[in-house]
Amino acid sequence: MTFEALKPKVTEITANTSISKDEKLMKICELLEANVDYYTWVGFYFANHETKTLHLGPYVGAPTDHTVIPFGKGICGQVAVSNENFVVPDVQAQDNYIACSFTVKSEIVVPLFVNGENIGQIDIDSNVLDPFTEADERFLEFVTAEIAKLY
C-alpha cells in the first residue's frame, strides 16, 4: 500500500473516539508493519525529561529488551537529544547503535513533537539494507503530526 493510501487510514485511527490513546498507537503500529513490506518492527518510545530516558510504548515486532533507553544512547536516544529525524541505512556502520536483533539491517526514527517539545518518537527497524527514502521520512512526519493531536 502506498504512503498516500495509508494516510487516511492513520487519520481514521487517530480520530476514533471509541478506543484509548495506547490502542490507537498499537493500531498504527499494526497498520504500518502490515502494509509497508520493509517495516519489520514498528514502535513508539516516550520521553521522561526528568530522568532523561525513553520508555517503550506500543509496538509490533520481535520482543525487545530495550524498554528504557537513556537520552544519547543508540539511535532513539540520539533523536531524543537532536530533535531530528535519523535514518540509518546500515546499522552495522553505526558506532552508537543498540542491537535489538541480529536480523535488523537499517532503522529510521522520527521525533514526535507536541507544542514544540519532543515527547517521543516512532522507531522502525527493517531487515532490509538501506530501504528508507525521503518518502518514508515525510510519511512518518505525517504520522507523528497526527499522533501529536492526541496529546
Rank of each mutant, 00 (worst) to 15 (best):
residue 127 N to D: 15
residue 24 K to V: 02
residue 43 G to M: 07
residue 48 N to A: 10
residue 26 M to C: 06
residue 39 Y to T: 07
residue 13 I to S: 06
residue 11 T to I: 10
residue 69 I to E: 00
residue 53 T to F: 07
residue 142 F to K: 03
residue 38 Y to H: 12
residue 58 P to E: 15
residue 85 N to A: 15
residue 107 E to D: 03
residue 93 A to T: 14
residue 100 C to G: 11
residue 25 L to Y: 07
residue 70 P to K: 10
residue 49 H to T: 13
residue 116 G to I: 01
residue 142 F to N: 02
residue 118 N to F: 02
residue 140 L to V: 07
residue 134 E to W: 10
residue 69 I to Q: 00
residue 60 V to Q: 09
residue 55 H to R: 14
residue 17 T to I: 09
residue 53 T to N: 12
residue 101 S to Y: 08
residue 8 P to M: 04
residue 72 G to A: 02
residue 95 D to C: 04
residue 39 Y to M: 08
residue 47 A to M: 08
residue 117 E to C: 02
residue 115 N to S: 13
residue 143 V to Q: 02
residue 40 T to F: 13
residue 71 F to H: 04
residue 133 T to V: 09
residue 47 A to I: 04
residue 96 N to K: 06
residue 114 V to C: 05
residue 67 T to A: 08
residue 85 N to E: 15
residue 59 Y to N: 11
residue 95 D to T: 13
residue 10 V to W: 02
residue 62 A to G: 11
residue 100 C to N: 05
residue 71 F to D: 01
residue 90 D to Y: 11
residue 138 R to T: 15
residue 74 G to W: 00
residue 84 E to S: 14
residue 119 I to E: 02
residue 12 E to D: 13
residue 44 F to T: 08
residue 63 P to N: 07
residue 142 F to T: 05
residue 10 V to K: 01
residue 104 V to C: 07
residue 131 P to H: 06
residue 49 H to Q: 11
residue 85 N to G: 12
residue 101 S to V: 00
residue 123 D to M: 08
residue 25 L to T: 03
residue 11 T to W: 01
residue 20 S to N: 01
